[in-house]
Design a protein around this nucleic acid. Structure first.
Lengths: 131, 131
DNA sequence: GCTGTCATGCTAAAATTTTAGCATTACCTT
DNA sequence: AAGGTAATGCTAAAATTTTAGCATGACAGC
């Protein structure tokens, strides 16, 4: 799987991969429901088949219908996506990215969430100190 | 500007926008140099013109050549990109995203960077406590 | 059995994207 | 002046993506 595979995807391919990662797995009908400016059912199925041919997706039978899953593990894809955003918009800086998130009204954290985040940082610092 | 405008861009459009955000501004030649599997110079120019027609980009004369800049401010685009990744891969959770970054070998933080990050969280907690 | 609904496999046309090339201009160097 | 290089404006063809529709199969309900 190419490093920047998400930027190698066409518009619709990308939209579909995002739905599959968000939901973990989805039928063609579920993918259709999640698409912006959705085409018809058969258009979605054709795209899913293409994504499968390209190796980005696989399907499993579930009852009498297919359900599609991303081939690349979620964790890998998530890391890759995060790195790409850091690189593109934040010069690679985690600090700047976190600052942006913390200052963003739409992603406001509760007291409890901030506490857990602080714990996370502390653990990373402890791990850093022990050689 | 549509909310998820990056997922509305075609493959090459998206690659070009990312270069413009990373570099802040770029000539056609610079964009060309940054593209994976690059086409010819005139292909890049044509794409920049299309992006400009669509309103994503504007150009300024700089000496005897054009330099292109994104229309949407970097901060907005950055926030939007981060939110999209959070939503797609982390169920909207900042904590999970930060945990992933901290556990990622490729984005390892120094002691000093962790300290600054901890400060950032503390400031957000202070801000949270004062009504 | 028939009808309706949901599904798949497949095709190919429509739409969009991507690409390169031509004509022209502006310079620098010989 | 001629040649070379870099640039722009523009066009349209090539390539790719996106889309819908047909044929078929599997069920369920009447």
């Amino acid at each position: 799987m190419a490093k920047g595979f998400r930027s190698d995807l066409s518009r619709r391919e990308r939209q579909i991969m995002d739905i599959l990662y968000r939901q973990g797995r989805a039928s063609a009908a579920e993918v259709l429901a999640g698409l912006p400016d959705p085409p018809g059912y058969s258009a979605v199925r054709a795209l899913l088949r293409i994504l499968e041919e390209k190796g980005h997706v696989r399907h499993e039978g579930e009852g009498k219908r297919y359900v599609y899953l991303p081939m690349q593990p979620r964790q890998n894809a998530a890391q890759s996506a995060l790195r790409q955003v850091l690189h593109t918009f934040f010069g690679g800086s985690i600090e700047n990215a976190v600052a942006t998130l913390l200052s963003d009204q739409d992603t406001q954290l509760s007291e409890e969430e901030l506490a857990r985040l602080a714990d996370l940082i502390d653990q990373a610092r402890e791990g850093e100190k022990q050689p």
